[in-house]
Design a protein around this nucleic acid. Sequence first.
RNA 1: GUGGGAGUAGCACAAUGGUGGUGCACUAGCCUGUGGAGCUAGCUGUUGCGGGUUCGAGUCCCGUCUUCCACCCCA
Length: 457
Amino acid sequence: MSTISTNPPAGMRDFGPAELCARRHVENVIRDVFEAHGFVEIETPAVENLSTLLGKYGEEGDQLLFRLLHRRDKLSRALEGKPAEKDLAETGLRYDLTVPLARFIANNAATLPRFFKRYQIQPVWRADRPGKGRFREFCQCDVDITGTSSLLAEADICNAVAMTLSRLGLTNVAIHLNHRCLLRGLIAASGITAGHEESALVAVDKLDKINEDGVLKELDTRGITPESGRKLLEVLRRPDGLTEVAELDRLRTALASNEEAVKSIDELRQLLEVAADSMAGPLFKIDASLARGLGYYTGPIFEIRAADIKGSLGGGGRYDNLIGMFSNRSIPAVGFSIGFERLILVLEERKLMPPLMTGPEVLLCRFAEVPAAGILRIANLLRQAGLRIEVYPETPKIGKQLGYAESIHVKVAAMLGEDELKAGNITLKNLASGEQVTVTLGAAASMITGWLGKTPL
RNA sequence: GUGGGAGUAGCACAAUGGUGGUGCACUAGCCUGUGGAGCUAGCUGUUGCGGGUUCGAGUCCCGUCUUCCACCCCA
């Protein structure tokens, strides 16, 4: 046994043909929907300068960045002294697609449309410990609109996401909706100091996983008094049976004294109205406990949830200050990121992935006396008819070739021997039924398309 | 980053501290121009790696790597 591991690095994956086929299918649905919304695609490099990445995601995010070490002389020189982290690396792998977008916008603001609607489907990397449905290299599908503060942008983006989910046949999903300012108001109203705001957010976000007692305990260990904790949980507690608008009303009453919170509640109400007739409307669920980890959000925040999977299928929100961190011009923006891996996981668990097949349909076999020269011409004849043809490269006994045909799941074997060659014929065998006919080369394609149930070209 | 389980043939798994096996897969034959079933034969291993205890270690101990699960956090 070889001593080098043949596994990819932890948290990273190879994709076999069947797996990739399913991924491409989902990707194509997403692409179609995004393009129907007028989004255009960009790609950015896997590697970004650390100065671009650091400080955008909060402390935890910085920890999870994959950093690329200097190479060769630069590394040796750095190691001679007492190197600090920043001496060893100046670049890292991107952590998401939003920050690279912000850099891209700041870099190209002059030539981009006033409202830039872009989508991007690319891998991102996080130096996290991998678990079920979690990877160190994974794909995100982002849609963002920059250049407007209009809530129509939020609605448009959520509509795109909702349409994607619907096209994939995914029901029983919700888009949880909250607002960063509302959260801040909630926390302030509970008497939690600004210094504890971030800790409180983290604890609150877990409300649906651990219960109220769990959150109280968590708040306690983070230095927040039980009194404040109880106050906070009381406001968060949503009575059964409330509509989304009624829930907003309830929060508005509870936070009436906080001007900022009231404003954000009205914004959410407006968003519900704008999106009411869209595909996103029915999916929205006001969730005052939704926090989202990333630090750069400033307004409404969203998260796709499915009851049968813990964690989210994606999320997003408004980030009006992020692009300004890369230039002196501040540009408002809102975006949504579909967690591709989670989506695939749910589709598979719910058996919503259609059977997909792109392998060869016909294996072209030949007996030993038939020369290889000319065999590709015959293959091309069939390919021109729209058939996917594989040619068996060697000439063992025909039974072995048929066995191979079976193993790669082709439906039809086409066989050429001396007799067929002389007569300009080819023998076709339907591997499922065992039916076998010898036809002229010209008639072969239509015979096969008939067997396959395909419409001829 | 924290805690726990697991690593034996290509894969799935057995083996009381005492000669490492079984199934599937693979190869060949039964079958010289016809696959799937069946039968027969064959191939596959420094038991993840390194050290220790022992007359003797796949088995016990320590380290290390990998992997799975839970937590932390996230998509």
